[in-house]
């Protein structure tokens, strides 16, 4: 069994306790309009092209004349015909072409992850599954978490919660901490902003309650989209109602996804302002008051 992985990032301090290695799964069933990891959306491997690093050497056009054309030192890349084989990226001297998405086995990933084993022990850290949506490759996610658990390291998963009950239940067996998204209040609103209804997600959260999981609710706050009093109250209520939820992290909108989207040839880019810090702090206060649980800006 293999999974499609687009990045393995070591020395991550913001994705769970201690020092962690984050494994990014490719592919996501949601289509959040503000998505900041666009290379995680499609499951199939994709070529990312960074024109600023390109020196126009033409190596790629020798490898794949369908996809690449160098004319007057300018690089034309035809994404429409690209099958994502990655040969051009292998041959690109500068790294301006790279392949997001690689088939990897559990062992291959764990070999990389366990390089920092002593550091996990020293810091209480471990592995974090992220994406994309790791549960979109549910069986592989379970297999990876189980392997990590066997090695005795801490396990975390960052998920939208949009998956089958079985997957959630299986994942919960091997997961120490869930970072669980709560992005919109109300089924229709969730469908509008993320492309899928929220019922499944909330049901799965209830399932995690019954499994005694440890959940941190992660809530992106996007001005003009979900930055409403109603949604803030929705976060607080949901957090309060679910026993598995131990804390809430608010994530103000940021623009870091922009560069990556450009490299993927995504031209219609979502943009809005970054929420003000004092308003975010007041949300934290409100949420803590209603839910009785800790709420911070992450």
């Amino acid at each position: 069994m293999t999974g499609t992985i687009f990045n393995i990032q070591r020395f991550s301090l913001f994705d769970g306790p201690g020092v962690r290695t984050v494994v990014f799964f490719k592919g996501c069933p949601l289509r959040c309009i503000w998505c900041h990891n666009p290379e995680g959306l499609e499951k199939k491997p994709q070529i990312m092209f960074d024109p600023t690093r390109c020196i126009g050497c033409g190596e790629c056009s020798c490898i794949c004349s369908n996809g690449h054309l160098i004319q007057d030192g300018m690089h034309g890349y035809n994404r429409a015909v690209c099958e994502g084989c990655g040969k051009c990226a292998d041959g690109c001297p500068t790294g301006s072409l790279s392949l997001a998405g690689k088939e990897m086995t559990v062992d291959e990933i764990m070999n990389e992850v366990m390089r920092d084993e002593s550091l996990y022990r020293e810091s209480g850290g471990g592995i974090t599954l992220s994406g994309g949506e790791p549960l979109y490759q549910g069986d592989f996610a379970v297999a990876l978490l189980r392997a990590a658990r066997e090695k005795g390291i801490n396990t975390c998963i960052e998920t939208s919660g949009y998956a089958s009950k079985e997957v959630i239940a299986n994942v919960a067996k091997y997961t120490d901490y869930f970072y669980y998204d709560y992005k919109a209040t109300g089924d229709e609103e969730h469908r509008r902003l993320c492309g899928v209804p929220s019922t499944v997600i909330l049901n799965n959260l209830s399932l995690l309650d019954s499994l005694d999981a440890n959940v941190t609710l992660r809530c992106p706050i996007v001005p003009g989209q979900n930055q409403t009093d109603e949604h803030i109250t929705g976060i607080a209520k949901t957090a309060g109602e679910h026993s598995s939820v131990k804390a809430i992290h608010l994530e103000p909108f940021h623009r870091l996804g922009k560069t990556k989207a450009e490299k993927l040839g995504i031209t219609e880019l979502f943009d809005t302002e970054v929420p003000q810090k004092d308003i975010m702090l007041s949300y934290c206060e409100t949420i803590e008051k209603i839910s009785g649980k800790s709420c911070i800006i992450s």
């Binding site: 020395f11 301090l13 201690g18 020092v19 002593s118 550091l119 020293e122 810091s123 209480g124 850290g125």
Partner: peptide
């Protein structure tokens, strides 16, 4: 604490 752990892990 995490940075301390990282540095200590290196030193040990």
């Amino acid at each position: 604490k995490n940075v301390a752990a990282t540095v200590k892990d290196y030193l040990m």
